[in-house]
């Protein structure tokens, strides 16, 4: 089983949109390496021909009548947002300067 380097933790943090600090990278890399070694024990199980369980309740599609029901009031929902404008969620620009 592989171990987690500081550079890998930095890459994963970027993928997960976490702007972690250098101090956090140092701390997390060590801690996550220990955790990864512990959870890697799942590899000890003999699971040839064992199907995976994603969910314990057998799921089947459920249909409901196609009836219109009220949604939450727009102003109430937008009141919980960090920024709203013109009855919409306001977001920062999507593309960086260089794009």
């Amino acid at each position: 089983m592989s171990s987690l380097s500081r550079a890998e933790v930095a890459h994963l943090a970027r993928l997960a949109r976490l702007a972690v600090t250098d101090e956090e990278l140092d701390r997390f890399a060590g801690q996550l390496d220990v955790v990864l070694a512990a959870v890697a024990r799942v590899g000890e199980a003999d699971v040839a021909d064992v199907p995976p369980t994603s969910h314990v309740v057998p799921l089947t599609n459920v249909f409901r009548p196609d009836e219109v029901t009220p949604s939450l009031p727009r102003d109430v929902v937008l009141a919980g947002a960090p920024a709203a404008e013109d009855d919409r969620f306001r977001v920062p620009r999507i593309l960086g300067e260089e794009q």
């Binding site: 993928l15 997960a16 890697a40 699971v47």
Partner: peptide
């Protein structure tokens, strides 16, 4: 943050089967 990073790793290409996939099979056992 630790759990988000660990989960992101366990689901990433190349590691998915060894970690998340294997864990789901252990769940069956």
């Amino acid at each position: 943050k630790r759990r988000i990073i660990l989960g992101t790793y366990a689901l990433s290409s190349g590691y998915y089967e060894a970690y998340y996939g294997q864990a789901q099979k252990v769940r069956t056992l």
